[in-house]
């Protein structure tokens, strides 16, 4: 008998193969099923709640009726403020890492730090925000300029700063990928006519990486918009009778007031389901709020995907 056919149990091996396939298929179905159940549950519980009034009015009657407009407004303003802080920081850090830091020990340590930052539990960011931004920076400014208690209290500014640090890794990684995607031949072409390193970056690399960087920004927004824990101590309000806006003196223009507190969608879900004096009665509001939050996040992710697709197509055209 040949030594190859000597190993028996072909049947057993085939059965094991089928078993492995079944296991993999099963876990996939489980994952997709869990997501479908979750989204389906939110949609089923929430879609009846969503009306024009729900989206445009403030909570009423001890937060058992009315809408969630302040929470939508707060979420969007917070996110805008966050990305305005996170984008310059993250893009600069990525440029430093990719263009200036080299491949030595220092850059490895920084990269490890960025990866670890992505793994820190979000409640720790919340405590950091309270300890660093509010108590250290905010109170520090107050004491230094004798302002009483102006900066040293929870506010949208500090909540946005905390979130900005939380989404930094997302933006840094996306920006680095975008910078790496610019072909070396483009850099060489610019250097060869006498461009300095900064000119190569500013005029050739960054414009070509722009779409990739914006994709990173959208992913960061989507990540930050759904966070709750970092906001608990840094500026989120249970209920606010007014929107966090302020009128610019002598003009009819109102702008977001970053020194005010704010309401926010995911926090609204949290308090409505745990702190309400009548949790059963407000359940439709909870589901409705969750649905709005999920839809908002979904739309932002969709935007990021479409953007990235367009960007890849442009790059492929560039490589012909």
């Amino acid at each position: 008998m040949s030594p190859i056919t000597g190993r028996g149990g072909v049947r057993a091996r085939k059965i094991f193969g089928r078993f492995a396939e079944g296991l993999c298929t099963g876990t996939t179905v489980l994952t997709v099923g869990a997501l479908a159940y979750l989204l389906g549950g939110i949609a089923a519980g929430g879609w009846r709640t969503i009306t024009w009034d729900f989206l445009t009015k403030a909570p009423e009657n001890g937060m058992t009726e009315g809408g969630i407009f302040p929470a939508i407004f707060g979420t969007i303003s917070l996110t805008v403020l966050m990305i305005l802080m996170a984008l310059p920081l993250g893009v600069s850090a990525a440029i430093y890492l990719n263009e200036y830091a080299g491949h030595g020990l220092v850059s490895r340590i920084i990269r490890a730090a960025v990866n670890n930052l992505a793994g820190v539990p979000s409640i720790v960011f919340g405590l950091f925000g309270l300890g660093f931004f509010i108590l250290f920076v905010g109170r520090g400014i107050d004491r230094a300029f004798g302002l009483g208690l102006l900066f040293g209290q929870p506010a949208m500014l500090w909540a946005a700063a905390t979130l900005a640090i939380l989404v930094l890794p997302v933006i840094i990684v996306a920006t680095e990928e975008a910078l790496l995607a610019v072909p070396a031949s483009q850099r060489e072409a610019a250097y060869a006519v006498g461009a300095t390193k900064w000119e190569v970056l500013r005029k050739i690399v960054l414009p070509q990486a722009r779409s990739g960087i914006l994709t990173g920004a959208i992913l960061g927004v989507a990540r930050g918009a759904g966070e709750t824990a970092p906001l608990l101590f840094t500026g989120c309000a249970y209920f606010l009778p007014h929107l966090p806006v302020v009128q610019i003196p002598h003009t009819p223009v109102w702008v977001i007031n970053p020194f005010d507190q704010f309401m926010q969608l995911s926090y609204h879900v949290f308090i409505m389901s745990t702190q309400s004096h009548n949790p059963t009665e407000v359940r439709p509001i909870v589901f409705g709020t969750a649905l709005v939050l999920v839809s908002l996040t979904f739309l932002m992710n969709l935007g990021a995907i479409l953007w990235r697709r367009r960007y890849r197509r442009l790059l492929e055209e560039a490589r012909v």
């Binding site: 483009q186 060489e188 060869a192 006519v193 300095t196 050739i204």
Partner: peptide, 19 residues
């Protein structure tokens, strides 16, 4: 290096125009 590369131009293996 800026002046050197202005005086010494280069054309590469694969055409690399800017987009």
């Amino acid at each position: 290096l800026v002046d050197l590369r202005r005086r010494v131009g280069m054309v590469f293996q694969k055409p690399n125009p800017f987009p």
